[in-house]
Structure formats: structure tokens, C-alpha cells
Design a protein around this nucleic acid. Structure first.
Lengths: 187, 187
DNA sequence: GCTTGTCAACTAAAAAGTTAGTTGTAAAAT
DNA sequence: ATTTTACAACTAACTTTTTAGTTGACAAGC
């Protein structure tokens, strides 16, 4: 039997990511994570102190990866929206984990990486508004919230609407990109 | 001790609504609901079969009430968005319960009231597009998804953005109404 | 007295977390 | 080069805590 702590940790993190994305913090089962990783349960407590701490590790890793993946471009917000949409479609776990986090950790410590990334985006937006590249009808934080909300359109859709939602991913993407274009348009 | 089955049920439903909104299905605790309602735990099982069934009851009641409260007006989508926003701000539990439901009940039975209400909205939207009242760049379902997403802008905001979010509710409302106005504008 | 509402105490099962002991590995000692 | 030693990786079984759900006794109103 080979022994490889790093490999074991990776297996656990992968399994934990799937489990938390599917069931949330309260719904996740330590035994299920261990079984699905093919690793002994005690290893979880050896490498990650507790269930809560395991979730934090998973969430931080996911968030960092997600932030790096999608580059912000204040000169092309519709393009940014499209890339963000692609990222969410390719990694639906990201959206679910973030939603669980917001629901189950209403007072979680703000992640430094996210704070920094948002500050940078707000700063760029402020600059673009000042320079006249973007209209001044919305504040920077308002642009950011609106773009994010529009990108999440198909995720926040109620299940009852499900069957009517366009099957074609390209179409769903085009709707979002076009909507953002209209939000930032000069009259 | 006074005996009033209806009163007891109401107390339990109120407590259960708060509990499920705060902690979700997996995170909710039957003992906490009973304690917060000031009612014995066994009453829950007497009036509502199980934890799952209690959640369904809470969710159906909340959904029906929420649907009735906000009237749809295809001739004034920005106004509808504003009223929906007000409803969500006044009853934040509604948004949380719906989100929990989407996460924890991915294959829940579609609620008849919601299905009917959505069908009616889609039908009206189709009519408005055909009549030229609304632009034809988006399908009915796309309008609905976009409007809902925009209304939820401040709810889907990541916590790290929290401090930057406008404190003024009227301003947050105005942003949403204006955004919807732009989405339905003719060029 | 019979039905229905209420309650405290109980049960069974599930879940998180722990422990005592085993095994592989790699470096030090021979 | 082999053996020894030390430690990290690992395991199975265990303990403790939590939680959904139950029961049987008692009380209130008809």
C-alpha cells in the first residue's frame, strides 16, 4: 500500500467539495466524504481539524481558483459577463458552494482574496465612470451587483420555470451578454 | 391551561418558518422549533407528520402568500420589479426559503400555484411582444428570468461586497427599477 | 365517560469525533 | 549493504453527542 499524504489530502478535498456542493454544511456527511474518497474517516480529522474547518478549506480553495479563472475587464463588461457565465456553467459547484456559504455562514469572515478582488474592480469601475467610458447613472458597486445578478439569471430561476428555460447554452449566454450591454449603454 | 389546536398550529408554523429560513431543512432542529413556539415537540408530529412535511407546509404557505402579494403587470415591468423588490425586502425569509428549497429540494414536486402563475405571466409577455408593447429581442421566459435576477441583485451579492452596498433602500430600489427599464427599452 | 390536546420522558439511530494500535518509508547506525 | 529506529500515514473499532421520532400518562372540554 502506497502512502502519500498529499494525495490523500487531495482526494479528501475533492470528495468534500462534491459533498458540500451537493448537501451544504449541515447536510454533508463526514462518513460519506471518507467513503467517496476511499480514505479513512480519521484522516479528515488529522488533516482538517473539524467538519467546519474542512468546509472553510474547500470554500477558500474553490473561491481562489474561481477568481483567478475569470479576468475582469472594465472596458468590456459584456465580455466579462460572458466569461463569468461560462465559468459558472462549467463549474456549477462554484455557484452552489457560494450559495450555501451565504445561507449557512451569514457572518463568515470575509475572504481576503475576494475583498481585494472586489476593491480592485470597484476602483476600475470608478475610473471608467470618471473617464466617461461608463455612464454615471450607477455607482460602481451597483454595476458590479447588477452584472453579477444578470450572470446568475438562469441559476436564480425558480424550478417551476425550468422546462421553459432555453436548452441552448449559447442562447442563454447571448441573453446575458446582451442584457449587460444594455445596462451600460449610453442613452 | 387553554386548549386551542388552531392557535398551536399557527405558533408552530411561525416558529418553523423562522427556523427553516435561518437554517434550511438539514440545519433546522425540531426541538428548537418546539421551544421557540412554546409548544411540546410531540405536537409537531401530531399536526405535521414529519420534519420534511412540516417544511413543505411552511414552504407552500409562504409561496402562496408571496404570489398573492405581488401583482404582475406586463404593461409596467419596472413597476412590477419595484413591488417584487419591496416584497423581498419586507419578507427576507421568502428569499431565503426559496433558496434553501432550490438547493435542498432539487427534484421537489413543482407547486401548482407557481406553475400556474408562471404560465400566466409567460402568456401575457408573449402577448405584449406580439403586440409590440415589448421588444422582441428576448423570449418571454428570458424577460422573466432577467427581471427576477435583477430584483434579486442585492440578495445575490457576495458578503464581501456588503459594506459597499447602498444603505438607502430607496436607492437600491431605484437601481433595480431603472435596470429593468433599460432591459425592456426599445433602442 | 369519551374524545382530543398536551406533556415529560423515552428510544433508536445517526452523526461527529477519538483512540489505541498497525504498517510503510526513509534516514541513521552498524 | 543490511539492519535498526523513529516517525508519519493509516486503520478498525470505539465513544459521545445529537437528533428525529414515539409513547403512555394526564388533563380539559364536551
Amino acid at each position: 500500500m502506497i502512502r502519500d499524504a498529499e494525495r490523500t489530502k487531495k482526494l479528501l478535498l475533492k470528495a468534500a467539495t462534491d459533498e458540500f456542493a451537493a448537501y451544504g454544511i449541515a447536510g454533508a456527511r463526514i462518513d460519506r466524504i471518507a467513503a467517496s474518497a476511499g480514505v479513512n474517516k480519521a484522516m479528515i480529522y488529522s488533516y482538517f481539524e473539524s467538519k467546519d474547518n474542512l468546509f472553510d478549506t474547500v470554500f477558500n480553495a474553490m473561491t481562489s481558483a474561481s477568481l483567478e479563472q475569470v479576468v475582469f475587464d472594465v472596458a468590456d463588461l459584456p465580455g466579462y459577463a460572458g466569461r463569468l457565465f461560462d465559468s459558472f456553467e462549467d463549474n456549477p459547484d462554484t455557484v452552489r458552494l457560494t450559495t450555501w456559504y451565504q445561507l449557512e455562514r451569514p457572518h463568515g469572515t470575509p475572504l481576503h482574496a475576494v475583498v481585494a478582488s472586489n476593491a480592485a474592480k470597484l476602483h476600475e469601475l470608478r475610473g471608467a465612470i470618471a473617464a466617461g467610458t461608463l455612464p454615471d447613472r450607477f455607482e460602481p458597486v451597483e454595476f458590479l451587483a447588477l452584472v453579477r445578478a444578470v450572470v446568475l439569471s438562469w441559476s436564480t430561476t425558480v424550478p417551476e420555470l425550468g422546462p421553459a428555460v432555453p436548452k441552448d447554452r449559447a442562447r442563454r449566454r447571448a441573453v446575458i451578454v446582451d442584457a449587460v450591454r444594455r445596462l451600460i449603454a449610453f442613452d
